[in-house]
Amino acid sequence: MEISITFSYNTVFDCEVDDIMSMLSELLRNLFKKRATVLYPEERDKVHVPEGYRGKLEFYREKCIGCTLCYQVCPSYTIEIVVDEKGKRPVFNLARCTYCGQCEDICPTKSIHLTKQFEVISLDKKDLVVK
């Protein structure tokens, strides 16, 4: 095995003390600051979710008029149109949902609403179907 080294001394090392000092003072200031990390599962209430967040969706059957517009704009085939006693209506399979919110935007009667709930986890697939 051959080991060969080449050097390129093309630059000179020069630094000033106060350049390092500005970073050092920032470091020491951060030592006494509150940590930036949110310990998520333990400190669940500290997670700030703003108004208008696109989370788990809710559906109000009484407002729906069965126009199927939500079905037409949904990009990930989350929505299935079924017929019940009041006529056509959507059924949402949240396991497929990408939370793009296009159905909420296009719904003419505001019967779909995306809530602030961001933990959509379930051990049973049936719990993820919104009716």
Binding site: L27, L28, N30, L31, K33, R35, A36, T37, L39
Partner: peptide, 10 residues
């Protein structure tokens, strides 16, 4: 971790 405003081993 403290210097970097993190928590480190916990």
């Amino acid at each position: 971790a403290k210097l970097q405003n993190r928590v480190g081993p916990l």
